[in-house]
Each structure stands twice: as structure tokens, then as C-alpha cells.
């Protein structure tokens, strides 16, 4: 089965990102396809390259990044939500004359149409949020 996943909360404050990661891993283990994970609202903060959680805590952005590398998953941050919250890839940073980009490897930034497309193309859409 082909899954679309929507993550609406940032890491750490809310359990949504942890639940979404656990669900995504379980779905992959069962042989399902993850068509796309889309990050909206504060969920875009899952894509930061600047998080430094304490040694004894999980590193949520790294977990997504590694999962994407391992299983070739499409991780997409909503561009409008990301710009509002200061999450930029290199081209967005350059285009808006910002000093640096802060998006971790494995994610990309695109429009809300990517979420709707995941709803159309996927067999199931599962939403994690507050």
C-alpha cells in the first residue's frame, strides 16, 4: 500500500514527530511504500540542520534524514510554512538574501500542491499533529 504522511508539529514539544517516525518505520518494515512525508505548520522544524539535542536524547531531524537516505523517502517541507518559520534551503536563502541555509540533508522544500498530490496518489493519508 502507498502512504502519504502529514506531520503538523515540530520535534520535541509534541509527540507527533516521534509517532510519525514510528509509524513510517513500521509501515516500511511491513513492505508498504511511503510515497511522501509532508511537513506543515511547525512540522517544518523537523527539517532543521541546527538542532543539538543533549547526548541522551533522540535526534529527530537526524532520524528523518537517515530514514530518507536508507529508504529513499521523499521528505517535503511546505515552502510557505518554512519561510514563515525561518527554515531555508540554499536556493531559498540565496533568493531572499539570507546569510545561511538551515535545512538538513534528505529534505526538500516545495509547495502545498505536493501534499494534495500525496493525497491523490497515495492509498492512505495519515496525519500526525496536535
Amino acid at each position: 500500500m502507498k502512504y502519504g504522511i502529514l506531520v503538523n508539529e515540530g520535534p520535541y514539544t509534541h509527540q507527533a514527530s516521534d509517532s510519525a517516525l514510528a509509524f513510517t518505520k513500521a509501515a516500511l518494515e511491513k513492505g508498504h511504500e511511503i510515497f511522501r512525508v509532508f511537513f506543515y505548520h511547525d512540522g517544518v522544524n523537523n527539517g532543521t540542520s541546527l538542532a543539538i539535542p543533549p547526548q541522551d536524547d533522540r535526534h529527530i531531524p537526524n532520524q528523518w534524514s537517515e530514514l530518507a537516505k536508507e529508504h529513499n523517502i521523499d521528505l517535503v517541507l511546505c515552502v510557505a510554512a518554512a519561510q514563515r518559520r525561518g527554515l531555508l534551503d540554499e536556493s531559498e536563502a540565496k533568493r531572499n538574501s539570507k546569510a545561511a541555509s538551515n535545512m538538513i540533508e534528505g529534505f526538500r522544500i516545495s509547495g502545498l500542491g505536493q501534499l494534495i498530490e500525496a493525497g491523490i496518489q497515495g492509498d492512505r493519508m495519515v496525519v500526525f499533529g496536535d
Binding site: 506543515y40 509547495g111 502545498l112 500542491g113 501534499l115 494534495i116 498530490e117 493525497g119 491523490i120
Partner: peptide, 11 residues
């Protein structure tokens, strides 16, 4: 904002 984008997809 999602709804306004979604409207373009003819669903």
C-alpha cells in the same frame, strides 16, 4: 491556505 491550493486540483 491548503484549501485554496487544493482547489486547483479538481478534486
Amino acid at each position: 491556505e491548503v484549501v485554496l491550493i487544493a482547489a486547483a486540483f479538481d478534486q
